[in-house]
Design a protein around this nucleic acid. Sequence first.
RNA 1: GGGGAGAUACCAAAGUGGCCAACUGGGUCUGACUGUAACUCAGAUGACGUACGUCUUCGUAGGUUCGAAUCCUGCUCUCCCCA
Length: 302
Amino acid sequence: MNTLIVVLGPTGVGKSAVSIQLAKHYQTEIISADSRQFFNELAIGTAVPSADDLKSVPHHFIQTKSIHDYYNVSEYETEAIQLIDQLFHAKNPLILTGGSMLYVDTICKGIDDIPTVDPVIRDEVIRWYNENGIEALRQRLLELDPEYYHQVDLNNPKRLLHAVEICLMSGKTFTSFRRNKIKERPFRILKIGINQDRKILYERINERVLKMMNDGLLEEAITVYPYRNLNSLNTVGYKELFTYLDGDCSLDEAVDLIQRNTRKYARKQLTWFRRDQDIKWFEPEQISEIITYIDQILNNND
RNA sequence: GGGGAGAUACCAAAGUGGCCAACUGGGUCUGACUGUAACUCAGAUGACGUACGUCUUCGUAGGUUCGAAUCCUGCUCUCCCCA
């Protein structure tokens, strides 16, 4: 049976290093599930693997998009599943690595088929919301999709906006698209979680941010600064530097903020992964243990 | 040496007799999250308890008062100005 080894964990823990070692060991390829490493213009700040690493092991979905492209989880699901099926003809197991929780889940469980929102409708709804406020948005959702109204977090404008957009666009309720059905994949999924002591993780994160600065993160941020309003640039490491470039804080403060926000992100990732009982957790150095564990499962049945 | 200001919870910072276990922000912790998700949103944060609650806090030692973070006195420390 074909097996997809999913390597996940908080940012900065060393997932890439583990994945690359695993890929070399199993002579296979890596599929990225990182919603920011897609973007060609964001290499330093998203900790894309080094040129050597990229050369030594084939990677997919790394720097394949532009920050100007519209891209979402659903498109990713389609493309990645297609690629995985194709790669399985020649390689097995395959490795999926990434910290973007929703993207990882999408590969493992699938995501409902919801129409892509027409940008015109999106702009309209956002403008309407900016003019009328959140309470009006809630009321609008209540009219359009009372069922979802009672489920959503009514304080969360993003969720409200999206539901309203879908309703307006499709003429159906948002709920009607929410099947919430787990898609069965034609391959086995083996989740390997990488984590370590919180204190050490934080230290690693702090150091990694300083290293990014040394590697030219500021210069990278400057090149994309003109497009700062793009969603793809609402990204830790860039938005803080934009504040600095605006003259609203010092460089030191910006770096400090990047470190903090990266730690926050790591925490959110852990929160998300915590509820997934299928994950088998390891420390980043336990490569041999991980391989033993994987082999055990690979050899166990078919 | 003289004069002035101040010491509040992890940090910053309100509070200036009872409504104060103490506003608020940050940090930290926890959680939600099916469509640009490194997004967006929520809760907790002195201790013990699910909870009504009980106990210990506002530099420190005393005092005034029915009652003090808030008033008085001594002490310690910090900062500023003049020498």
